[in-house]
Nucleic acid binder design. Structure first.
Ligand SMILES: [Mn+2]
Ligand SMILES: [Mn+2]
Ligand SMILES: [Zn+2]
Ligand SMILES: [Zn+2]
Lengths: 150, 150
DNA sequence: CCACTAGATAGGATAAATTCCTATAAAGGA
DNA sequence: TCCTTTATAGGAATTTATCCTATCTAGTGG
């Protein structure tokens, strides 16, 4: 039995090729990082991480690469506290963000997540061409919440 | 019968005094603008508007003033497309934002808006200290939607 | 009506995030 | 290996928001 031909998300090289992106060391490094597991990253964080192995990688490349991954549908972009955050979990879900430490967590979809989207579209948005919906809970995470009591 | 003693929202001077803010020409001008009706404004927009009558007003003053109004509970702050937006409608409600022209509209609260908050708090957020929840629908407004077809 | 003081303002410096520009480098196909 | 297209690094430019400070003033009390 041979390996399946379908490129796996765990094979960054194949993933890039599948989406018509040239396989460069920088792009590969970013892919290996952000697709290793579901995560929320900013360009700055990616840059800091990648620089450990690619000291010369530029912010520009990081921005371009993340933007391309988004264009391919491999990442979703949202904003929190004025920063652009890229999410490698591309299925629809809500977030909670800690106002103090910046931690962002995924919220499990409600039981009827998919139906919710169609059912709960507000009447006023009928004439709109809605592309997406974003819900963020703001507050203090358990750690910061307990610290603030001290 | 005399005028009621309760300061009205339509009397910016009284509104400022009520909240312990000195009545300066700049502050008054900002108050007259943002409290004249429900609106969504950025510091830049407020600055441009106020400058028509107060050519020397600084962005710093605008930022400070809007921040103070927020601290008083007279404005709510949220973000969209990386910009800070101040909302003079302080009751809880969702928004829709046009990705092309930037228009922001208020969405009528769902029938059980208040109960929704307690009922729908995700289980995962039990250990959190939630301060608020933001929901934004992104897409194209009717105008931009029809233009994009042409 | 005047003087005093806490608070407000203008303007400039600073900071941070993102985009733009361009010459050079390199991936991948011929 | 050569060639064309695309990617990259680095820096400039833009944008937004905050910080700093000297000056000014609203409101208070004399
Ligand atoms: Mn997520
Ligand atoms: Mn609103
Ligand atoms: Zn936290
Ligand atoms: Zn529009």
């Amino acid at each position: 039995m041979r390996k399946p031909a379908t490129p796996s998300n765990h094979n960054p090289t194949a993933l890039l090729r599948t989406h018509g992106l040239r396989v460069t060391p920088q792009r590969l490094a970013v892919a290996e990082l952000v697709f290793s597991k579901p995560m929320h990253v900013t360009a700055r964080i990616v840059h800091e991480q990648i620089r450990q192995n690619h000291p010369a990688i530029s912010m520009n490349t990081v921005y371009l690469t993340l933007g391309q991954f988004e264009a391919c549908g491999l990442l979703k972009r949202f904003e929190v506290h004025g920063n652009i955050v890229f999410d490698s979990n591309t299925s629809p879900h809500d977030h909670a963000c800690c106002n103090r430490c910046g931690t962002i967590i995924d919220l499990d979809s409600s039981p009827s997540a998919s139906s919710k989207h169609t059912v709960q579209l507000p009447t006023q948005l009928k004439p709109w061409q809605i592309e997406g919906e974003r819900r963020i809970w703001m507050g203090l995470c358990p750690d910061c919440s307990s610290e603030s009591v001290l």
